[in-house]
Design a protein around this nucleic acid. Structure first.
Length: 424
RNA sequence: GGAGGGAUGGCUGAGUGGUCGAAAGCACUGGUCUUGAAAACCAGCGGUCCGAGAGGGCCCCAGGGUUCGAAUCCCUGUCCCUCCGCCA
């Protein structure tokens, strides 16, 4: 959520900044609601003040043994007036809340202008795409030739957009996960956490998936409410600090977690239907940081490096792109995507996304730290990034490390995790 | 699933329907003392909203209710703890 004070004081300016994200902020509607709120709030608070004063005097009179009947008569209709005022105020505040909770984060000034992914800006590249002296296959062809990657059986078990890995390929998937976790914990200082894979709606509201993006989630009835399968570990991990005030000494908080991710992929019918690129269920090693506000931009660069380190260990060529305004997510102020080279598609494809959410999620979550300089609780900044998406890394390894006879060589960094296996 | 107990400020923890936003301790901040530190002593110290300010409102898990007045009484829900049962 944006800071209501800032929105109130410069609604036009906020609207202008949000245009970069392709979002039209309803200035007039907001200002009208805000004016109404102010009036109703003052009115309600005056009535409350009056009730409090009078009730107190009744208490005093009673203690002094005086007759309180005349005083009771004076407050006779105060209650109903107050109820009416409160009801009006509540409704108005709910409307304002609904409006504000649907407004995306303001993009940072360094975010490139643009509408969609075609306008993203390449920041740097690493490595050189390998030259093949044969026609490289894509991961589907590679995996299906010996039945290690089996989409048909997965479809039988569940449906489309699920995958079944077998044997050494399943192990390679696990090896990647372990290598990523070990790197993030041992080399980059993250604390590993194991978290629930189902979350409540408060958590999703905190990180910004709700209320606007419910159709992207798997929703499970539970008693008289719902739980949701996590679309990313960002949700449970970031919500660790929801409704907390942490000491400055605890910052930065750096967590990493390996979880499955579940996405309904609503609205993506027909896109990336071949292979493991876009699945309802996939694994990811996530990095999350909670930092003091002045440090979040440095943290964004640092975290991007932490994701890059994995690709570098695997010697996978990639590029870093800065997302343009139109391609930025709802909660993000700035995002770098890492795109890995896929020989099967002759394209760079997203494999990680690292974002600074500034105080946007923290405000929704009321995640704060005590600033030693002011002694007051202030909002944290939150960041998250994939380090990395395991399924996509697996297929990147398959395609980049394939041999002419259809085998897959195991990158050196993974061999210790593969029990010495060097080729599949 | 059954039977009980609980939820109060950053933390621990008192609390009578009426100056209770709330004792006390810890933590924190400032001061005295000290070469310095510790200890001791003194003082300060919840959050949030509206307001230029004065000031005012709200918040004792959440939502309802009773009442002139609720942290305190009643109802519903959530979470935690203990015991029994079941269980990977």
């Amino acid at each position: 959520m944006l800071d209501p004070k800032i929105v109130r004081s410069n609604p036009e300016e906020v609207a202008e900044l949000l245009k970069k994200k392709g979002y039209e902020f309803p200035v007039e509607q907001f200002v009208a609601l805000e004016d109404q709120r102010k009036e109703l709030q003052v009115q309600t608070e005056n009535l409350q003040s009056e009730r409090n004063t009078r009730s107190k005097s009744i208490g005093k009179a009673k203690a002094a043994g005086e007759d309180i009947q005349p005083l009771l008569a004076e407050v006779a209709d105060l209650g109903s007036k107050l109820d009416a005022a409160k009801a009006g105020l509540n409704e108005c505040q709910a409307n304002l809340e609904d409006l504000l909770v649907g407004v995306p984060n303001i993009p940072d000034s360094s975010v490139p202008q643009g509408e969609d992914e075609d306008d993203n800006v390449e920041v740097r590249t690493w490595g050189t795409p390998r030259e093949f002296d044969f026609e490289p296959k894509d991961h589907v062809a590679l995996g299906e030739q010996d039945g290690l990657l089996d989409f048909e059986t997965a479809a039988k078990i569940t449906g489309s957009r699920f995958s079944l890995l077998k044997g050494k390929l399943a192990r390679l998937h696990r090896a990647l996960t372990q290598m990523m976790l070990d790197t993030q914990t041992a080399e980059h200082g993250y604390e590993e956490v194991y978290v629930p894979y189902m979350v409540n709606s408060d958590s999703l509201r905190g990180t910004g998936q709700l209320p606007k993006f419910e159709e992207d989630l798997f929703k499970l009835p539970f008693g008289d409410r719902h739980y949701y399968l996590i679309p990313t570990a960002e949700v449970p991990v970031t919500n660790i600090v929801r409704d907390e005030i942490v000491d400055a000494a605890q910052l930065p908080m750096k967590f990493t977690s390996h979880t499955p991710c579940f996405r309904s992929e609503a609205g993506s019918a027909g896109r990336d239907t071949r292979g493991m690129i876009r699945q309802h269920q996939f694994e990811k090693v996530e990095m999350v940081q909670m930092v003091e506000p002045s440090k979040s931009w440095d943290a964004l660069e640092e975290m991007t490096g932490h994701a890059e380190a994995i690709l570098q260990k695997l010697h996978l060529p990639y590029r870093v792109v800065a997302l343009c305004g139109g391609d930025l997510g709802f909660s993000a102020a700035k995002t770098y995507d890492l795109e890995v080279w896929l020989p099967g598609q002759q394209k760079y494809r997203e494999i990680s996304s690292v974002s600074n959410m500034t105080d946007f999620q923290a405000r929704r979550m009321q995640a704060r730290w005590r600033n030693p300089e002011t002694g007051k609780p202030e909002l944290l900044h939150t960041l998250n990034g994939s380090g990395l998406a395991v399924g996509r890394t697996l297929l990147a390894v398959m395609e980049n490390y394939q041999t002419a006879d259809g085998k897959i060589q195991i990158p050196e960094a993974l061999q210790p995790y593969m029990g010495g296996v060097t080729e599949i």
